[in-house]
Design a protein around this nucleic acid. Structure first.
Lengths: 190, 190
DNA sequence: GATGACCGTTCCATATACGGAACGATCCGT
DNA sequence: ACGGATCGTTCCGTATATGGAACGGTCATC
């Protein structure tokens, strides 16, 4: 944004509302640049205004679902991928038995992949973790109730659940079958 | 503001725009009912208008990101879960059937997390991916022989294998049990 | 050093998403 | 039967997200 000095007499650019809006904008800009197309070009192809896209990428707009759909459709990514990164957390409970299979250290993020076995009948609560951490579980056997303590999600064999771990979260088996699952924890670096 | 003259008397209820809006509304209503709270109550807690929520649940509105965040925060679910239908895509090779559970886009790398089911007795060969791509499988049931075609690795339930997929690679079941596994593919960006 | 094509940003009138209030319906307790 | 509470919907003025049209900047080609 090399627009000279300070752009005096103009309409007040609305201050970016929440951090989330910034993140979505940043991700759109990244994706667009990966595709190697200009802002004008993407706006044209997606059938939206350049002003809209510009404001959105810079975090000054609060876009409409329709707008986001138009953009993601053109970029060929699921809309959810724009919202993927959030959350916090930490680890490790005691009732849950986990084996660390692999750690991925990348520039701005670390992933840890675990294989979990949770004995039938057990419940474990983990405290809130750092902001930005997310947990992603895939259930292969049994039924698990997991997620934020005030709104856990239920998943059976073959299902997948995701939550932000910046609030206390719980793992509780349901039924009398041991739960077998994989857990991927994502730690963005500040 | 400049609300013009030709603003005819009535405000016609806008026809629901796309199917996607309907789906999001339906999912919100379902989640709300699961929580056992009324529309009025949710609107109050989330700090949005009843009119907004009503119109949204019925598919007559094109909500703003801000509005969606307020609602999902109150319901305790990630916003992406409202768009779940867009996230799941199925890949199907000759033998392997996989559901894409999640995509992580980070600065210099992308991860894709799949859940796989490979019917007993099947074999599939996949062509090489770009250089630097690696695959990481966790086996939950059955026995799998997978990896580079000239040096595949054997893994049974509870085991984990990793290989570089910049060469042709193979997936072959061993024994007569279906293989259940999770597959994490890591794509570094050039 | 023009000219023209394109870029990203900003200005602005218009369209529309927003919340507050009014509404009829339902369900109490009295 | 009657208030009063709460429900979901609709009405409507206001706030704001939108796209089109400037605008200034950069980069070619002449």
């Amino acid at each position: 944004m090399h627009h000279s000095f300070m752009d005096s007499g103009r309409q007040t650019p609305r201050p970016a509302l929440e951090t989330g809006t910034h993140d979505v904008g940043r991700r759109i800009r990244l994706l667009r640049e990966e595709h190697g197309i200009s802002l004008s070009e993407l706006a044209r192809r997606a059938g939206i205004g350049k002003a809209t896209l510009s404001g959105l990428e810079n975090g000054f707009r609060n876009p409409t679902l329709e707008t986001l759909w138009a953009i993601t459709a053109e970029l060929g990514v699921p809309l959810a991928s724009l919202l993927a990164a959030d959350t916090t957390s930490v680890i490790r409970g005691t009732a849950v038995e986990g084996v660390l299979l692999q750690v991925f250290e990348d520039e701005s993020v670390t992933y840890e992949l675990y294989r979990l076995v949770i004995p039938a009948g057990s419940t474990q609560v983990s405290p809130a973790h750092h902001e930005g951490v997310t947990e992603h579980m895939t259930i292969f056997a049994g039924v698990l109730n997991a997620g934020p303590v005030n709104a856990p999600l239920l998943a059976g064999a073959g299902e997948h659940i995701t939550w932000r771990s910046d609030v206390p979260h719980i793992y509780a088996t349901v039924g009398d079958e041991d739960v077998q699952a994989s857990l991927l924890i994502r730690y963005p670096r500040p």
